[in-house]
């Protein structure tokens, strides 16, 4: 369950930004995960647990998945792999091991809430709704 460590790293970084911004809560965290990053959707569940009693408690986690693309030297272009985890060009079938996208693990945006705000946080109390909300941005 290395997602637990990933969630801890994520919350630590976001909490530092919240402190720098003087925010009293974090409403949304957007992250970008490459297909090769090794993350799984289990991150949602770890995130919820690790966020408890932090400034990130109740925040919505939105994940943008970045597809794996490779540079094909034969076609001299960026291509998708022929099948999942096959480092061959989908067009010409030649080996293409240079990863262009797919290794990303980045925070891209954080929405902060400040004292005095009267805009309610989105009601995403069930896991189903939270997953649906996250999928909508993909």
């Amino acid at each position: 369950m290395h997602e637990l460590s990933i969630a801890q790293n994520l919350i630590e970084l976001v909490s530092e930004h919240a402190s720098q911004e003087g925010a009293c809560r974090v409403r949304t965290i957007r992250i970008r995960l490459g297909e090769l990053s090794g993350f799984q959707r289990a991150l949602y569940f770890c995130f919820e647990r690790v966020a408890q009693n932090t400034v990130c408690e109740g925040a919505r986690l939105e994940i943008e998945t970045v597809p794996l693309t490779l540079h094909c030297g034969t076609c001299n272009d960026t291509r998708r792999p022929s099948t999942r985890y096959s480092f061959r060009c989908c067009e010409c079938g030649m080996p293409a091991s240079e990863v262009v996208t797919g290794r990303e693990m980045q925070i891209t945006a954080i929405e902060f809430g400040f004292a005095g705000t009267d805009v309610p946080a989105p009601d995403l109390s069930s896991k189903h709704e939270r997953l649906t909300a996250a999928r909508q941005i993909n």
Binding site: I6, N9, L10, E12, L13, H17, E21, A23, R27, I31, M105, Q106, I107, T108, A109, I110, E111, F112, G113, F114, G116, T117, D118, V119
Partner: peptide, 14 residues
């Protein structure tokens, strides 16, 4: 009341 911060920071940067 709410503010967005746009960044590009690796989650495992530490």
């Amino acid at each position: 009341q709410n503010r967005w911060l746009h960044i590009e920071q690796d989650i495992l940067s530490k």
